[in-house]
């Protein structure tokens, strides 16, 4: 992707917003206690980066997010595969999973705190629970909607069950699996923010809540912006992966 004139168009409005925000803050129109100026937020970022506090909190939050995603996404993917490929497995497990799905996973927070306290397990559990369903549902859907004509062709051409899976079913389900992954990434950060805000002694959410206690609005805004940046980064990584593995897809072919 080249940054040509057209790509720059997207940056005009954010840049204007930032300038407007800075101008209003400098003129005193927005009180420091409501929303500090962008320069103040940047200064807070610099300060925290200097003490190392920022990195340790970003690292611990990212670690929680990734571990939760691997566990929840892995289990969701496994169930999606099993239930997509086997009617028996689907009859056995899908109704239960659908039942559990009706519980908003964030409603589990009080129970999870009772079970695990406020240490790592609680947050990883919540993230894993949150990302499970989008991965599960989209994997299942992807496998179910693989072109039946291709499956018939593969059988007629004598593919073994494994070949059928590896060469037809999985590649066919991949676009849908990626939709699930990108959805899961959004839920992953959302869950983590809530969990860290409510109960944590480290992490970005903790940093924000702690700053609130001391009325350090600049750090609160900084935390929010970092969350946004991490979310964007995760989404971009997923898109990159998507581009690499779906290069056959007409939507990704170079023009």
């Amino acid at each position: 992707m080249k940054l040509d004139g057209k790509a720059l168009l997207a940056f005009i409005i954010p840049a204007l917003l930032l300038l407007g925000w800075q101008a209003l803050s400098s003129l005193g129109e927005i009180p420091e206690s409501v929303l500090p100026a962008p320069t103040a937020v940047a200064a807070a970022g610099w300060r925290l980066a200097w003490t190392g506090e920022l990195w340790s909190n970003v690292t611990i939050s990212t670690w929680r997010a990734v571990i939760g995603l691997i566990i929840g996404g892995g289990v969701g993917f496994a169930f999606g595969l099993a239930n997509g490929l086997s009617r028996l497995s689907e009859r056995l497990t899908d109704p239960t999973l659908q039942m559990v799905r009706t519980i908003p996973h964030l409603a589990m927070i009080p129970l999870v705190i009772l079970w695990f306290g406020i240490d790592e397990t609680a947050k990883i559990f919540l993230v894993a629970l949150g990302v499970f369903f989008p991965v599960y549902l989209n994997t299942l859907h992807g496998i179910r909607t693989v072109d039946a004509q291709l499956v018939e062709m593969a059988r007629a051409y004598g593919m073994s069950a494994w070949e059928l899976f590896a060469r037809v079913v999985l590649p066919g389900a991949l676009p849908s699996i990626f939709v699930g992954l990108r959805y899961a990434l959004g839920i992953m950060w959302l869950t983590l923010i809530v969990a860290e805000t409510i109960s944590a002694s480290t992490g970005l959410g903790y940093m924000a809540m702690n700053a609130r206690e001391f009325m350090m609005v600049d750090v609160v805004v900084l935390s929010i912006l970092i969350y946004a940046a991490l979310g964007k980064l995760a989404d971009s990584l997923a898109r990159l992966l998507e581009r690499a593995t779906l290069s056959w897809h007409p939507a990704y072919l170079p023009a």
């Binding site: 004509q149 291709l150 037809v168 590649p171 991949l174 056959w248 897809h249």
Partner: peptide
């Protein structure tokens, strides 16, 4: 067999 549709694997 050749089908009415080519039935090529789009990802290969």
């Amino acid at each position: 067999i050749m089908f009415q549709e080519p039935r090529l694997l789009p990802w290969a």
